[in-house]
Structure formats: C-alpha cells, structure tokens
C-alpha cells in the first residue's frame, strides 16, 4: 500500500475538498466582510457592497473609535477585568484543585460532592443577581470577577490533570524536607505549565467575551465593558430603527465605525488565536480523560 498513490485526487477527494472549502468559506466570510468594511475609507464607502479588500484603505474608523471616551473607558475596564479576573481564577482554581487531589484530607468528599452539585444545579439568574446586589457589588468591576472566581468544570479538569502528574517528584521533595506549600509552588506549579497555559487562555477569553453579567451588574454606562458597548453600538441602533422607535439620526454611527468596533471587540482573541487553538484543543482532551 503506497500512500503516494493515495495522494492522487479521486472524484471522492474533489467533492470532499470542495465541500470542506465551502464550509470554511462560510465560516470566514463574515470576518472578511467586517474587516474589509472597517478598513474602508469612509469617504469612498458605499453601503452594502462586498469587497474582499477595501477599495481604499483607511484607519479613519479606528482612529475615530479610539478617540471616543466611551470606547477607551470600555477598553480599559475590559482589560482590567480580564487581567485581574484571570489571575485570580488561576490562583484560586489551581490551589483548590491541588488540595482536592489529597485523598486523605478530611472533608474532601464533601467538598467534591458540593462542587459537582453546582455543576448540575444553580439557583438561577435572579438569586445570583440579588446576592451581588446585597454584597454592594452593583456597578463595580468586582461584580464581574468574584461571582466567577472559579467553576466546577475547570476544577474537575485541573484536578484530573494534577492527578496525572508523577507523584515520585512530590514524594522526593518531601523526603528532602520540602514543606507542603513549597512542594505546591516549586514542584507542582512548574509541572503544570501546559494546564496553566490552557486555562489562562480559557479564563481570559471568558472574561473578555462576557456579556450578560456586564449587562446586569454594570448599569452605569460609564462603566460598560467592550461587549456591552459594541452591542449597544451595533445591535440597538439597528433594533431601534427596525421597531420604529425614534432616535437622533446623527447619533447612529456609520457602518464602517460599527464594523471597526466589532473588529476591536475580537482583536485580542484573533491575536492569541494560534495559541488558543493549540492549548484549547488539548484542554478539550484533558477533559475527556478526567477521573
């Protein structure tokens, strides 16, 4: 059986390759359209015309957006939530997951049971909202950080990852007189770098993309995150027009500006995408070998 012979494309291959290309094209078409319009010079922009590349390149839409206070504020707050939230997610999740790998620890079963319970039952939107309100976190960025400090799904995957590490190193370090904390910090954490990379990306993407929590917890428009701002910019103006709700025509942003805001809302994700793809795919498989 020579694989060289199989490289000759048969009809089967042609059909397969064409269908796959078609699906990929469907996946990438919206990106191309939004990119192309967002980089088009507003002067030459004609609504509803598709160009693979802008007729005339311009950064005018981007420089306009990045000069508005609302956008800069949203960018700053979203960055703050993403960075601080991700660091806290990692510290809390890996610490708890490591403790949960210790089979002899009294109370471990109860903790695991409760964590798994939260995976299948939640009090719902309203009780969670009331809690955040009672804690005085409304209109605070911490309302987007504390309620999602860790989660059952991540803990279970991280725990199974930590359990798969060879225990000999830990034992050896203990014999050499390392304290439990030193073992965790100097042995377990360095060995966990693949999982830390995957979960850094996972937590960061989740924070960056969060919409609903930002919507309900941050009612003050000065505190809006990027996703809420982009939604208001792109969708609400559209809905307002559609439902016939009157609005100031001049306040409706031009298409190129709205498209540029979409691009900016996904820009960091596109930048780290090569890493995302690799580590996330591994993360998915980490999940499938959990115990």
């Amino acid at each position: 059986m020579s694989f060289v012979a199989q490289k000759r494309l048969t009809l089967f291959d042609w059909v397969n390759y064409s269908l796959l290309s078609l699906f990929s094209l469907l996946c990438i078409f919206p990106f191309l359209y939004v990119f192309s319009v967002s980089f088009t010079d507003p002067e030459v922009y004609v609504p509803l015309r598709f160009y693979l590349f802008p007729e005339k390149w311009s950064l005018a839409s981007y420089s306009y957006i990045l000069s508005t206070n609302s956008f800069l504020n949203a960018l700053k707050s979203t960055t703050f939530i993403t960075v601080v939230g991700t660091v806290l997610n990692l510290v809390v999740s890996f610490s708890l997951a490591y403790a949960l790998t210790k089979k002899g620890m009294p109370g471990r079963g109860m903790m695991m049971g409760f964590i798994v319970f939260t995976l299948v039952f939640s009090a719902g939107i309203v009780p969670n909202y009331l809690l955040v309100k009672e804690l005085g976190l409304l209109n605070s960025y911490w309302a987007l950080i504390w309620p999602v400090l860790t989660n059952a799904w991540s803990l279970i995957i991280i725990k199974s990852f930590l359990e798969s590490l060879p225990s000999e190193l830990e034992d050896a370090a203990r014999i050499d007189g390392c304290s439990d904390l030193a073992v965790f910090l100097r042995i377990v954490i360095p060995l966990s770098m693949p999982a830390i990379a995957a979960f850094t990306l996972f937590f960061a993407v989740t924070h960056w993309n969060t919409y609903f929590n930002a919507l309900i917890y941050l009612s003050d428009s000065k505190k809006w995150t990027l996703q809420v701002l982009v939604k208001t910019l792109v969708i609400d103006t559209d809905i307002a027009g559609m439902a016939g709700a009157g609005g100031d025509e001049k306040s409706v942003p031009q298409e190129t500006i709205r498209m540029a805001s979409i691009v900016l809302a996904m820009a960091p994700i596109l930048v780290v995408y090569p890493f995302l793809q690799k580590h996330f795919a591994k993360g998915v498989m980490l999940g499938s070998v959990k115990g």
Binding site: P30, F31, V205, N209, Q227, I235, M266, I269
Partner: peptide
C-alpha cells in the same frame, strides 16, 4: 472563540 455579541453583530 468569539463572543455572542460579536457573532450577533456580524
């Protein structure tokens, strides 16, 4: 990896 806001906007 895109947010639902980006998907809905597109």
């Amino acid at each position: 990896f895109l947010s639902w806001v980006v998907v809905a906007s597109m």
